[in-house]
Write a protein that binds this DNA or RNA. Structure first.
Length: 117
DNA sequence: CATATGACGTGGG
DNA sequence: CCCCACGCCATAT
């Protein structure tokens, strides 16, 4: 069996841990999460892990694209749900899924702030 | 084994 | 703003 099929794959656990570490009211990119989990370049895998994740407590909605937009297609079920959760946390999201911060200013390791710079 | 597809990312035109 | 190429990697066909 390939490790990737193992639900207890430590790398998956690392990804989930990185997602859980995102403070409420803030957001992070898929690539950021991947790097934080020690898996640089595996943003796609992060997305897949989130899609498969079953933990209702997982703050998956705090993970966005690197350009600060919601990854789901606008008006899709996932999009609406994610936007709703972000708004509930005080994160500003426009109707087309854009958050306040398009890109991190300098430190790629830092999380994007809630709102006003 | 060869392609295609994604909740991706970076870089360029 | 748009579009494209390429890199990336797990799944699906």
């Amino acid at each position: 069996m390939t490790p990737e099929h193992d639900p207890s794959d430590p790398r998956r656990m690392d990804i989930l841990a990185a997602v859980r570490a995102i403070p409420p009211g803030t957001v992070a990119g898929y690539g950021q999460v991947a790097r934080r989990a020690g898996l640089p370049g595996r943003a796609r895998w992060v997305a897949r892990v989130l899609a498969e994740a079953d933990d209702p407590e997982l703050p998956w909605h705090r993970v966005l694209r690197s350009d600060g937009r919601i990854a789901f297609e606008p008006c899709s079920a996932g999009f609406l749900e994610q936007r709703r959760r972000l708004l509930a946390e005080g994160v500003a999201v426009s109707e087309d899924g854009r958050t306040a911060r398009p890109r991190a200013p300098d430190l790629d390791a830092m999380l994007w702030g809630p709102a006003s710079p």
